[in-house]
Nucleic acid binder design. Structure first.
Lengths: 248, 248
DNA sequence: CGCCTATTTGATCTGATTCAAACAATGTGG
DNA sequence: CCACATTGTTTGAATCAGATCAAATAGGCG
């Protein structure tokens, strides 16, 4: 993950604005959110399952994910999160965490007291809709993942998550037109796609062989975007990105 | 699906109250929602993908589902819906449908204009939180389905959905302590679990053989609840049902 | 260098799919 | 009320995508 030099508040705003136009007043209001920055080391939890958090978290630098563990200890990654994402917004409405949020790499996060969120919303009621909309879009992404796991083959699944990450990072201007950094291991890619790391490895070799992508370490390059999209049965509409963002 | 004799409004209230306590005022307010009842025949759509609905729907009698289609035409069922469920609440916040809502059996649904929902919410702002919470819980269910598809074997998946449906129907008092009606074919169960109908059939035979369940036509009987839960790695907390409902 | 973690390769096994056909249940119209 | 179409369940055999087990290779890094 490249380091971001913009302030936490701006990261939040930039992330929201990938999907939702904010008014000047809303942006200013968001800038006043009190937040406490915290460092999370790689492979450790930001929020644990069963907890009843009293703050919401914002992912700043680094890569995080939601996950659940099935019996037998197998982990399923439910979504990937980076700059400006607020993966536990639902905590305002559902008190007990039914999944964990974990850092994949070392990650800095900002914590915002629920109190402060509620206060902000009651001063600026339109922000309630903004936050709710963000959560709804996460729901939409979750549904696409269900489709990905339920109906697609291994290579389709991998191609699909690569497409999703690329589009989301590009919307945040964290990817140029052909490449992005994502410090995720093949084992973790497997946890996101319901495949073993061995199989992920073979699938990646196939995608490289087909000259759809190339990757060295955590730098991934899209060689044939149209080809990759079609290999992953990818249609970005479920991300609900704004037209401007898509055009950029 | 057994016929429900209570009014549409009461179905909505009863469904919400499986997860959320409503005040008398909130219940009364919900009773005033204007709604138009519509009959949907089996295997047809309530809302199509890509549409921009101006009403929200409530499932009354019958069985409905959300679904998406992958390239190649394979369908993935994303969630199952019955009495009182409002599967397109997100339509208030995200305009374009990124999935369809379809009837599995003939189903009656109630349509509520978005206008009316917004008017109700602005008169009773606390209802905004209620509806949002409902949508958040749907997100939680979606995440459990990701885990189900990504990490569990065929029989675990099937056992898990049976457990989920049983718990949700029981919360609505549509199931007695051991059995429930659910008019879903094995092919559709496969579409919900990412398995072929052939494999669903064999898995069901195994579950019957293990004396966990018994079923004849659309009547399903739980023979060994504890055994079924453990076969499906099922823990109901992701449904966020109220303690009272769980106890009942 | 030696340690640790991630990627890669090979061989084998299996859960699930595919294809095909039989069988059961339900409904429809003549 | 029977012939017939229709849809869902069940069975069998062959095949395959992906898992499992095991070991080799390759990078980082203190």
């Amino acid at each position: 993950m490249p380091q971001r030099n913009i302030s936490p508040h701006l990261q939040i705003i930039q992330q929201i604005e990938t999907t939702t136009k904010l008014s000047g007043e809303q942006r200013e209001a968001l800038m006043t959110l009190p937040l406490r920055v915290k460092q999370i080391s790689g492979k450790s939890d930001v929020v644990r399952i069963g907890e009843r958090p009293h703050e919401a978290c914002v992912i700043l630098n680094g890569l995080a994910c939601r996950y659940k563990i099935a019996s037998g200890g197998r982990r399923q990654i439910l979504s990937l999160h980076f700059s400006g994402d607020m993966p536990d917004l639902h905590g305002l409405h559902v008190k007990t965490m039914d999944h964990a949020i974990g850092a994949i790499t070392a990650t800095s996060v900002a914590m915002i007291p629920h109190e402060a969120m509620k206060a902000l919303i009651s001063e600026h009621p339109s922000l309630a809709d903004v936050f709710t909309r963000q959560a709804m879009i996460e729901g939409s992404i979750a549904r696409e993942w269900i489709l990905n796991l339920g109906q697609r083959t291994g290579s389709e699944r991998i191609a699909h998550v690569i497409c999703e990450v690329f589009m989301r990072l590009r919307a945040l201007k964290l990817a140029d037109s052909v490449s992005f950094r994502l410090p995720i291991s093949q084992a973790e890619l497997g946890e996101a796609t319901g495949l073993t790391s061995v199989h992920v490895n073979r699938v990646l070799q196939k995608l490289r062989g087909a000259e759809l992508i190339a990757s060295q370490r955590d730098l991934h390059r899209i060689i044939d975007w149209e080809g990759l999209k079609s290999a992953g049965d990818f249609d970005s509409s479920y991300l609900h990105l704004r037209r401007q963002v898509l055009a950029a």
